[in-house]
C-alpha cells in the first residue's frame, strides 16, 4: 500500500484521532468517581488541617462529619443566605463575581466544646493559584489554625507556604485579624521587618511574590467576611 498518498494520510489521521479520543474518554469517565472522591477527601483534609486536627490513621470523612457542624453560605452583608452548601462552593468561581453577589462559604466547627469558624481564602501566587483555610476562635479575631496550599509554586521557595514552619507562625503567638474592632488582616512581611499597624508573620526568603500573594489573599479573602466578623 502507498503510505504516502493523501487519502491514506487523511484516513490514518482521522482513525487515529477517533481511537485516541475514545480511549481517553473511557479512561477519564471510568476514573472520574474515584478522582472526585479524592478531591473531596482532600478538601476535607485541608479544612481539618486548618483546625489542627490530628488525622494520623483516622477516617477523614467520619472525623469531618463529627467536627464540622454547619456549612452555611453567607452574603457580603454577613447574613446567612443558605443553611448548607458551603462545601460545594468553588472559590475561583465566586471570586469572579462582584462582592454583593458572592456566596461566602463558612464552616462552623466544634473542637472540644469550643466553636471555631473556618473561612476559605483563594488568591494568586507566582505561578498559579494559592488557597487556604483560616480557622478563627469564636471571638472571630484570634487565629486558631491555618492551612495553605498552592498549585505550582517553586519547591523550596514559594512552596514553603504549605510547610509547617511558615504556618506555625500564625499560631506560635496569638495573632488577631482585627485591631480595636477594625479588620486589619495579617501582614506577611519580609523576615526581620515589622508592621506596627497590625499583627504580622515573616514571609518566605526567596519567595517574595508568593508571600505577597498570601498577604493579598488574606486581606481580600478574609475582608469579604468583614460584616460577619463584626457581628
Amino acid at each position: 500500500m502507498n503510505t504516502n498518498s493523501n487519502t491514506y494520510t487523511i484516513v490514518y489521521a482521522s482513525v487515529m484521532v477517533v481511537i485516541v479520543a475514545f480511549l481517553l474518554a473511557f479512561v477519564s469517565s471510568s476514573l472520574k468517581d474515584k478522582q472526585n472522591e479524592n478531591v473531596e477527601l482532600d478538601k476535607k483534609k485541608q479544612i481539618l488541617s486548618a483546625l489542627n486536627v490530628n488525622m494520623e490513621g483516622a477516617d477523614v470523612a467520619q472525623l469531618y462529619s463529627e467536627i464540622v457542624k454547619q456549612e452555611p453560605l453567607l452574603s457580603a452583608d454577613g447574613a446567612i443566605k443558605a443553611e448548607t452548601g458551603a462545601f460545594a462552593i468553588d472559590s475561583k468561581i465566586e471570586n469572579a463575581k462582584p462582592l454583593e453577589q458572592r456566596n461566602l462559604p463558612l464552616f462552623v466547627c466544634q473542637i472540644e466544646g469550643a466553636t471555631k469558624y473556618v473561612l476559605p481564602v483563594y488568591g494568586a501566587g507566582l505561578w498559579g493559584p494559592i488557597w487556604g483555610y483560616i480557622a478563627l476562635n469564636d471571638d472571630k479575631s484570634t487565629i486558631y489554625g491555618v492551612y495553605f496550599s498552592h498549585a505550582g509554586e517553586t519547591p523550596g521557595l514559594g512552596a514553603e507556604i504549605a510547610a509547617e514552619p511558615f504556618q506555625s507562625q500564625f499560631t506560635a503567638s496569638p495573632k488577631h485579624i482585627t485591631r480595636n474592632g477594625e479588620f486589619t488582616s495579617i501582614a506577611i512581611v519580609k523576615p526581620s521587618k515589622v508592621d506596627e499597624s497590625r499583627d504580622y508573620v515573616n514571609g518566605i526568603s526567596g519567595g517574595t511574590i508568593t508571600s505577597q500573594g498570601v498577604d493579598a489573599m488574606l486581606k481580600d479573602g478574609l475582608g469579604q467576611y468583614v460584616n460577619f466578623l463584626k457581628q
Binding site: Y12, V17, V20, L24, V27
Partner: peptide, 26 residues
C-alpha cells in the same frame, strides 16, 4: 504515513501521558 509521523508519535505520547496523569490522580 511519513509526512505526519511526528504528529502520530506526539499523539501516542500525549495519550499515554494523559492516562498516566489520570491514573495518578485516581
Amino acid at each position: 504515513p511519513n509526512r505526519i509521523r511526528i504528529i502520530v508519535q506526539l499523539v501516542v505520547v500525549a495519550a499515554l501521558v494523559t492516562i498516566v496523569s489520570e491514573v495518578l490522580k485516581a
